[in-house]
Simulated assay, not measured.
Amino acid sequence: MPRRGVAALAAYIAAIVAANWLTSRFGQVHLPGMALEVTAGTYAAGAALLLRDAVQDTCGGRWVFAGIAGGALLTAFTSPSLAVASTVAFVLAETLDTAVYTPLREHGWARAALVSGCVGALVDTLVFLSIAGFPLTAAGVGGQLIGKAGWVTVLPVVVVLAIRQVGRAVPRHSLGA
């Protein structure tokens, strides 16, 4: 496995564990300045959805599920009350995410990451909140989707696209190349 793959897999597992630990420790929190709620691990869970794509690209699809297994095992030690909810939610979300990401990846990373991240965020949110015993309210689901799909999927993709665009617009000789 390439070093980038090892790093992506480690980051993916860490994001899963962080999401569960934060949620176990702090529960639901209010988004500042909004009438929305999120579980405290929402941003880490959203990062896991994006990192899943990096794991698939660098290691292959089977390593995504190895990462979920690793995250589930560590979550069982750090946040046992959320281990089942997290594992079921990640397996379902990542299965759908992979089914969307893989065919779209041929047409570019950004489209694949955006669409699969939004699908993964929706499934992960509904399944996790239901199994973990959090209420399925408009404020809770809406906050989760803004956190996972908006801030952690859309924003990084837009930043990457902007950086790529700037890189194309600047002549190579002005970069010292």
Rank of each mutant, 00 (worst) to 15 (best):
A10M: 13
L49H: 11
R111S: 08
W21N: 03
I163F: 13
S79Y: 15
F65N: 11
T137F: 01
L73T: 12
A89T: 03
T125Y: 03
E94H: 13
A40D: 02
W63V: 13
F26W: 13
S116G: 00
G41L: 08
G108I: 05
A48G: 09
V141D: 07
M34G: 04
V38M: 13
E94S: 11
S86P: 13
L126F: 02
A8R: 04
L82W: 15
S81N: 11
A93R: 01
A45I: 11
P156Q: 03
A85V: 09
V152K: 07
V64E: 04
T87K: 01
L92P: 01
I163K: 13
L82V: 07
T98E: 07
G120T: 01
N20I: 04
T95S: 15
G167Q: 07
G41D: 10
R52N: 15
I13S: 10
A14S: 14
V17M: 10
G46S: 06
Q56F: 11
A8L: 02
T39D: 09
V6M: 09
A138N: 00
A121N: 03
A47Y: 05
V157L: 12
V84Q: 08
G140K: 00
A138Y: 00
L92I: 08
A14Q: 10
F65R: 11
L74W: 04
G108P: 14
Q144T: 07
P80G: 06
D57V: 10
T125E: 02
H107M: 07
T78A: 14
F134G: 03
L161C: 06
L129P: 08
A89V: 05
A44H: 13
T153S: 14
A89N: 02
G71L: 10
T102H: 13
L122M: 10
F26E: 08
V64M: 04
R52E: 12
A162R: 10
G70E: 00
L126T: 01
V84H: 07
L74P: 12
A113T: 14
A99G: 14
G27C: 07
G117S: 06
G61T: 15
A138L: 13
L129T: 02
V91A: 13
G108S: 04
L126A: 01
L49T: 08
G5A: 01
A10Q: 06
V29Q: 13
